[in-house]
Design a protein around this nucleic acid. Structure first.
Lengths: 336, 336
DNA sequence: GCGTGACGTCGAAGCGCTTCGACGGGCGAA
DNA sequence: TTCGCCCGTCGAAGCGCTTCGACGTCACGC
């Protein structure tokens, strides 16, 4: 193994000079830096991370805790993780993988043992058991998603309120005047995460603002429930021409139900969704949708962490602007 | 931060004794061990991994390199990764996540910097560019999948040959006498990975052994190709009643095509596949299938690595026995 | 011409742990 | 009884790096 003293000898300087030349923490003459870099290259020197961590109390490792729960979208998580790793590497950091299963103990462990400098926690619940720990820790962390009380925590997520608004505005722009939101299962609005409510708020606000007639229907995650909701909608809002779906599981069955009830998509009914692109693309009728921008969330999460590690102040809340992808499921309202 | 000297003081012993008491590398009296453990608990002592790594040249970290390529099955990778992490934790190790993108340099980096003690490499190609590096490294590694030349490498994967055989045997047991294999796209058999060929070998061997009439058809990953293959099969093997599909992309379109051609599954035609369970379950006709046992592969990979790290000899090749899950797509051959 | 700083470099200390050699005491064998 | 050995423990060295204080040099201002 080639070590810093080897480099120092070859460059004709002291080890500390090598360290400063490589870290830039003290001014080093152009000439010396060149010689050091040359020696590093020739010898293929790689600092020993353990030694570095011990001396500097920085491990250059971020811990990423990924969810295991059923019902989470695996490709989205994976995309996120890859984005975190890729971005972390740009800042010369590596990523340690933790599973939700390890819980608070896992987070505490990697911090206490100085394995990780900072934490990224996914799938944050409204009242997440990890919150007190994260608040108390002296290491920076970033949460993906917003808990009920985000005070003192750095959180990032898609701006679900804006996403709800964007869906309505898109439909309004196409001339639709009567819209409905088919939302998540009822229990999601109670406990679970905050984003479901935010979508409802955005949906309602935008509908009111645009003077659209609107209704909101939570929906269980079953085809039967989808069918029931479809029927109910047509009964209660006979003039309905625009639907926003925020419920991955029923998107397809819902469209099927509408078509069985005699409504063509997008001919009679425009449908737009908040769901992963993969799902929206794969349907028989590709659906105009807003996706969770997982790659962007991952990258931004790392950047926030790097800001905090660098002692910079970072915003506590980061809401990512929704981006809509138009596919085949929305169109101008047919004028009867 | 509480360190080993603190524990030593509280337990009334020297730091080295604490170290030995915790590692078990030297005999320590019952009484002393108890006092040390008590002090550890009271103080909440956690060894500093950097210091430990520096002194022992063991980081207790495994690096896992995951594929990014389009066409790989994300949930399978994720399941594998989670299994690796979970198993690693049982051996008091953590897992560092690397992306394929980082390639050989990434592997070399984590080894040279002593970040990782060992490597797990997924999605191994027949002629993988990482092979020379892995062979030359002084750290143990395990490959998921088999390259063309596995000499000197430790590899693990599903036994695809046995999987091919199992499919045929299952069909034979149900009375089918004429079978066909719909395989991967032709290019997969050329470069790519070895498993496709292994399936063919197993399929053919089992068919011959059972004196079944059989045929093998590679198939492009498009519904049109699926349709064409279905038509061709019926033309060339009119008595066909059993099909094995080893091609995720065409499984669904192929079944659709058969049904459109007037063959009911499983009434007229039994279909079995080698594909992820998720896919097999989600089809209109749930398909009897053999899945890649990703959790088991992950766990075994870690165990192999631990064996190597412990200086034990481990088998170079590990082939996992296929396990078939019967779903609705196979049945007894209808006797006309 | 001399004090003052900034610049560039060095030496040494120390980060927290493991491990090696040594050592005292107890015990069995001779 | 004595020798040798093993058991249990200690002290010290050292893993490879960063960082702090110190020091010499040079340029500048007065």
């Amino acid at each position: 193994m080639v070590k810093i003293t080897d480099v120092a000898r070859h460059a004709g300087v002291s080890p500390s000079t090598v360290s400063y030349a490589l870290s830039g923490k003290r001014p080093i003459s152009e000439e010396t830096r060149r010689r050091v870099e040359e020696a590093v290259r020739r010898l293929g020197y790689r600092p020993h991370v353990g030694a570095r961590a011990l001396a500097s109390s920085r491990s250059n490792v971020l811990a990423l805790m990924v969810p295991l729960r059923a019902g989470i979208n695996v490709p989205v998580v994976m995309q996120f993780a890859v984005s975190v790793v890729t971005t972390a590497r740009r800042y010369d950091h590596d990523v340690l993988l933790l599973t939700q299963e390890e819980g608070e103990d896992g987070l505490r462990r990697v911090v206490d043992t100085a394995l990780a400098d900072a934490l990224i926690v996914m799938d944050v619940q409204l009242d997440d058991p990890r919150l007190p720990l994260l608040r108390g820790l002296d290491r920076p962390s970033v949460l993906i998603g917003f808990p009920a009380d985000a005070e003192g925590l750095t959180c990032i997520d898609l701006d679900f309120r804006a996403a709800g608004e964007a869906c309505v505005e898109h439909l309004a722009r196409l001339g639709h005047r009567v819209v409905a939101l088919v939302g998540s299962p009822p229990e999601v609005y109670v406990r679970g995460t905050a984003f479901a409510q935010r979508v409802v708020q955005g949906f309602t606000a935008a509908a009111d603002r645009g003077r659209l007639a609107s209704a909101v229907h939570p929906c269980e995650a079953s085809p039967a429930a989808a069918r029931a909701v479809a029927e109910q909608l047509l009964r209660e809002q006979p003039a309905l021409t625009g639907v926003v779906v925020h419920n991955e599981a029923v998107l397809e069955p819902l469209i099927d139900a509408f078509e069985e009830l005699g409504l063509r998509v997008p001919g009679d009914l425009s449908v737009t969704a908040i769901c992963p692109d993969e799902l929206a693309e794969s349907l028989r009728v590709p659906v105009t949708s807003i996706a969770l921008p997982s790659a962007e969330v991952g990258a931004r999460a790392v950047e926030l962490l790097m800001g905090k590690l660098g002692g910079k102040g970072v915003p506590e809340a980061t809401l990512l602007a929704p981006r809509m992808t138009e596919r085949g499921s929305t169109g101008r309202r047919a004028v009867a």
